[in-house]
Amino acid sequence: MYRIVRKEILNPQVKLLEIEAPYVARKAEPGQFIILRVNKEGERVPFTIADFDREKGTVTIIFQEVGATTQLLGQLNEGDEVEDFCGPLGVASHFEGVKKAAVIGGGLGTAIAYPQAKKLHSMGVSVDAITGFRNKDLIILEKEMAAVSDRLIITTDDGSNGTKGFVSDILKKLLVEGANYDVVIAIGPPIMMKVVCDVTRPYGIKTIVSLNPIMVDGTGMCGGCRVTVGGQIKFACVDGPDFDGHEVDFTELMRRLSMYKDSEKASVERHKCRLEGVVNG
């Protein structure tokens, strides 16, 4: 069992849990992920590592309550435990030789972009951070991102925070104005990553994306997370989750992500019934 030592509500849908997992914390690096199960009947769900503290022996995850498991997870409090917490999995991000980087987080993707920005910043890399949200109430990690970047631009789809547009629009503007990056790191919904890749492609800027396909074991055993990268089949769990965005078949990724949509809906409904049953009973 793995104890929750800190819980924060970052916005109405997004929560942060800092969980005691000393073995995982000892090895964790930005770009890697963990797989957890909330309880004995739970499914195995991957979460990218948002932060870690080797001394405290904790690993932080940030998630949006979208499915049955994340809703269940969202109800847990400090002091509660999760059944399983396995990691660190996947290959850590590599930043050798980078001098100037743009780190882009779309919505919840900001939580995963944050440790990358933090690492780059600690290496002395100049970091432009661009984060985007649907509206100003959904903005997360503003202070944290500001602390690890030279410049932070936060944009909203509806302009409610004063800057309107998608992260890709902001990036395009910066590039047109002459910004020069060794690498662009884009993390968020697949469609956002795809659009960012389309923006950087003409400039020939290396663009790293972090993929989140469906997986079971996270160790290369099931192959459920296979993605096509540069025409080759790769397993996101062991070959990634970071990949060269210009090589990724995003259409296939999005299609494969929809594989269990119907059963996911049914599962959320089932949980809702159970919860309401508890409240009413």
Partner: peptide, 28 residues
């Protein structure tokens, strides 16, 4: 990579380890 293609490992793991054959299983 079409939807509906499994490795036997994935198909069997979902069913055996994750109990997906049970109606109320969390894993589909």
């Amino acid at each position: 990579n079409l939807n509906g293609v499994y490795s036997a490992n994935e198909f069997l793991t979902r069913i055996n380890l994750m109990k997906a054959y049970k109606e109320d299983a969390e894993t589909p």
